[in-house]
Design a protein around this nucleic acid. Structure first.
Lengths: 225, 225, 225, 225
DNA sequence: TATGAATGAGAATTCATTCAT
DNA sequence: GATGAATGAATTCTCATTCAT
């Protein structure tokens, strides 16, 4: 018994299981996915799974954490750029637009992970919703910080930043889920333009001529490319 | 055996079970809620449940359908008002704002149902996601129709209506989930104003002076109240 | 509530329920038949059933008892005839053949009851198999008595009457189940002839010329008709 | 949790469960036997059962199939012998008698399986009666083939072979159920003699002197032993 | 008498997790 | 490390029976 399988480095084996898990969870949903499904997809035996993870919840959370880690990096990079833009006097709208595009690309490039986070993890499953709540709030506060920075520099009109943040996140998440994942739209550049255009008009300070700002920003981007 | 419980009209009993179910599902999540939980919450015996519903999925879907029925009514009423506004020459922005407020009030007044729909029903649970998908698409197309109507009358700039619809729905859902349900904000009127203000600026035709339109609309509302 | 249904004499209602029950049990089997099925077939409400019977087992047993009562009467009549034949000196083989035909006709005329007794009641269901065992043994001993009578009068060769009885009953039951109920053969007269012919040859005393006995018996029957 | 039990080879474990199941089904009947009963009898946990069988119906049918497989082998061997007898000119009645004895021994040696097949499996339980019907018909047709062969060789009088088959099967089944299983008669040789004696007298061609045939056959057997 | 809503014991089945090999 | 047979808690669902109306 115990047909011995290839012995591969610990980290690689773990990565293989995570790969299998993300597919299985996205395909069947957390509830309907069984550990056995994951094991089969990973080509390992029942017991092997538990050498790498403590439980079903554990793999799932690891995937969710990985999503938020990656997304946090994008948000932080954007903050950085924005701050740099203000310091160097370059157009902050370019940072803004870059962020939106980066977000769309990240989600669109990780459809299964996105599916898992926004359609599986969010759903009061005592198991992990507390942790997911924290992670979401973290991400949200990073977005909020971006708006605060822009507000401080007089870029925004006197909107309720909390509300603006919710609208902004809601918009990006929905566009991603709906237009990108479901309807397979792949003109991400154009979507990013639509979104930023919308946001500038909605949020920019009256001192800023939104129309013109968008023109300038487009020109800048074109020049950059 | 058979500790007898007071008999109540069939419709009332069913309503009681639905009431219990919505609480249980919102509290524990679809996955973690057992039929026994619902029965206990409703104060009935195990078997009684099955006199009114075929399965756990069945109650759940009935709740979800009820959400969408109610929401559909709100969407249709809004369409009606908007159409009337165009016909009678009254300010369509008032209809627009009324709709946003009605949506916020509906969700805020039905927090558990909202929770269930947006955090439980949306999540690839083969059991019902097909049906939920259809319902969501129905609702979405009603919102889209509203935008189409406004676009036809020259109220909007040349935005991609699909994208605008996703942004709009995402915004309202997120605001509801985040600001209303989670953070218990109850200044719905103010939230509605913020949202509509945002949307007008983002979407209104350049021929319309958003700034002014918002002023007028506010005045109208005030007069009405 | 409680839509009042026709009030009919107690005995008639009971008969109606039995009628419904025999059909339902034969159709679905004891196990798969639900009281509700019977109630629906009888056009009565759930509770009404229990005004006439104590339990599911109770109706079923009542049907089984009814089968054995009817069959017992046939067996007793046959005994009677046989005894008369011996007394009056008429051909006992005519009685024998009459009995076989009567048995075939009875079973063939009550296919559902037969089905119930031989395919449902016989099957160690603690519920009622003890009682069924007794009833079967009763019937068996009546058949055995017939053979004993014939043996006493020198009609049979020195066979083991117990074995002969089993063979005889097995034959009739199987023929009924197989040829009559399953294959819908309706030439009962011919079947009876085959069976009796068989039995005479197998069991008749060597002093009796089976060949001739059968001829005579046939002639007698023909004369009678 | 998970009080571990000694691991035994898969085939052995399955055999143990089947052993337990045959006892439980014979004891309580299919309907009254619960999977838990089988598990307890087999000394395994609830879930273990499902590693080997899909359902209660599944184990049951496996037992039934096993009965018919074993019986089919006996029937086929008998056919073979009979054919050989005709070819080599040895007494076919010896084959006949061998078969009857083998059948009695098989059933008497597997009382629980016999009980299950003839008292549980035969009974319109939608679950499996279709399959059982097929198996019974298969067995029946093998018996019929034996009679056809004998008829072709002029061994039988012009009886309706269908009827003869039913009588023959009914006789053996009833004798087994009644005399062997219920009344614990163990003089199988004598029973076989009685049955064959009966059958020869009932079915043999007039050209054959049944009386003498039986003598010869008995002598042959004695010589053989 | 008749009704049918309500009851709850009981059964089958699933699957995350354990651990002897 | 790897395996996979075994475990058993937990869940859904059925249906004979009761009894207030």
């Amino acid at each position: 018994m115990a047909a011995v399988r290839k012995r591969i480095p610990k980290e690689q084996r773990k990565a293989e299981i995570l790969d299998a898990a993300v597919k299985v969870f996205a395909e069947k949903g957390y509830r309907n996915a069984s550990i056995t499904d994951i094991n089969e997809a990973a080509g390992i035996a029942r017991g092997t799974f538990y050498l790498y993870f403590d439980s079903k919840k554990d793999v799932f959370l690891e995937l969710v954490e990985s999503y938020f880690n990656q997304y946090a990096r994008i948000l932080e990079e954007n903050q950085e750029h924005l701050r740099n833009a203000f310091e160097t006097g370059t157009d902050p709208l370019v940072s803004w637009r870059n962020f939106v595009l980066a977000a769309l690309e990240f989600h669109s490039g990780n459809p299964e992970l996105t599916e898992i986070v926004y359609r599986q993890a969010i759903g009061r499953d005592e198991d992990f919703s507390a942790r997911v709540e924290v992670l979401l709030e973290d991400a949200r506060s990073k977005v909020l910080d971006g708006y605060k920075l822009m507000a401080e520099r007089g870029l925004l009109r006197g909107v309720d930043l909390e509300v603006a943040t919710s609208i902004s996140i809601g918009a990006i998440v929905y566009i991603t889920m709906d237009q990108v994942l479901r309807k397979r739209r792949d003109d991400l550049e154009k979507l990013a333009d639509e979104i930023v255009d919308n946001q500038i008009r909605a949020l920019a300070s009256p001192r800023i001529d939104a129309e013109k700002a968008i023109e300038v920003s487009k020109a800048n981007r074109a020049a950059k490319a």
